[in-house]
Design a protein around this nucleic acid. Structure first.
Lengths: 250, 250
DNA sequence: AAAACCCATCCGAGATAGTCGAAAGTTTTC
DNA sequence: GAAAACTTTCGACTATCTCGGATGGGTTTT
């Protein structure tokens, strides 16, 4: 296999991942979790501290705000991000639910921005959160506007992993839904990623019909009943449309 | 000097820095800028892509949303961040200006959150943005609540670099101001970091009087005239106080 | 209060694996 | 359609990463 790439780089980021996941740790703790020799982990942590991406306070290693910085800079350069402007806020206000902007990256759906409704912090929704495309409304909205063979390829490569009991795992059903999404102009997910959650998402296309992202509204099933779905879908579609216009305008 | 630390880790992050700075690049472009052999840069980029922290599309390498994710996770674990809750929003609304939450990290002032007022995007204010402590109101507010010898040490180590023509470069004047800040309960900066900008900041202390951060309000000199300064300072002080209470409560 | 223990840090020899020149392959330019 | 520019592959050399073990500080146990 890959005998090529740089081992040190891989290990450094494995450590970063671990730090991010479990919120810091000590040398031996990390060595334990990563199953690496203590002295090796120590060496890496020292190197990471030198880069400024990790700090150590009282033998506790932590990631620094450098990640925030790099992340925000990247986000500011993304055209979709600039194009939504405050449409998301409007969506959150109008629906009273969480509104998120999502894009596709590395075959996954990723949250770029979260605009909170009246609710508290949602553990599952934060900038950078990733999830399978087929298990979310925004993911399906984006799939619906990719070439069919690209979708086939994705299925072949990653499969249709079940995230909850309601996740779509049958390619045939998925394709049916994609067809429907194209007709309706929006996608819906009922507990396919998080049990009890309903998400409604509208795709953002550019002038050459390339999919650029999706605007998604999420809330508990109890609050998003049949009667509100059309209304929410309309709000999302409108916001997606405005974004699209801004996008082409840039 | 440091003959120890891992060279590869350092180089990997130098490349990341470069990507973040100039918004991506090609192999040769980066090799040029970093003065590294093309093949070496190529190797690193490949390794970085494998980690998922960098992507390549059409020979353009870019940082990914992984940085956003790691950054946001870290931020969510910071107590000050949780403690401000929506005080910042209140501050922005009440003053009609930018409000930021800042902390000290690696001897610098770093923005954690930006709450925008009616204004557009401020190029200088984004989460993760770093600046010298002595050249900003929040920085001075934090310095005012550090031990004097810590401040001496900082000056010895980094000096009092001038960011604008109005930046404080004389230690004596700085110490005078710190004294005044402690008396007044807030710090002010008039064009010391950005010409034409006035910032007013209140320190956030925990129950053991350790400095944890600062709440800062910034706006153009023309809009923040003498008469409004007390009012703004009061708003910032109140928000800092509420934050402090939340902090001790956690 | 001594001993045992845990953990971070240092050290250095050995060998893996990073490095980079050069060549091959690919895309763009003129 | 040739040349230029750039990316990617290859491979040998050896720089440098690796990690067992020693060191020492700090804390808990007996």
């Amino acid at each position: 296999m890959a005998g090529t790439s740089n081992q040190s780089v891989g290990r450094a980021f494995r450590i970063v991942d671990e730090l991010a996941e479990n919120g810091g740790g000590s040398v031996s703790e990390l060595a334990d979790r990563l199953e690496m020799p203590v002295s090796t982990v120590h060496d890496y942590l020292q190197a990471l501290v030198e880069t400024g991406y990790v700090t150590v306070t009282d033998k506790e290693y932590q990631t620094t705000t450098r990640f925030l910085e790099v992340g925000h800079r990247q986000r500011h350069r993304l055209e979709v991000f600039k194009a939504v402007r405050d449409e998301l806020e409007t969506v959150a206000e109008e629906t009273g639910e969480h509104a998120t902007l999502m894009i596709e990256e590395a075959d996954q759906a990723v949250i770029l921005t979260v605009q909170e409704g009246p609710d508290a912090i949602n553990l599952f929704a934060y900038p950078g959160a990733r999830m399978p495309l087929h298990a979310t409304a925004p993911g399906k909205a984006m799939l619906a506007h990719m070439a069919d063979d690209r979708v086939d390829e994705l299925i072949a490569q990653h499969g249709l992993v079940a995230v909850t009991s309601r996740t779509i795992t049958d390619p045939e059903i998925l394709f049916e839904q994609l067809e429907q999404i194209r007709r309706q102009g929006y996608a819906i997910d009922e507990g396919e990623r998080i049990a009890g959650m309903v998400c409604i998402a509208a795709p953002i296309l550019d002038k050459s019909d390339r999919i650029r992202g999706a605007i998604c509204v999420c809330g508990p099933q109890s609050r998003i009943d049949e009667s509100r779905r059309n209304e929410i879908a309309d709000v999302a579609k409108r916001a997606a449309n405005v974004t699209q216009v801004n996008l082409d305008y840039v």
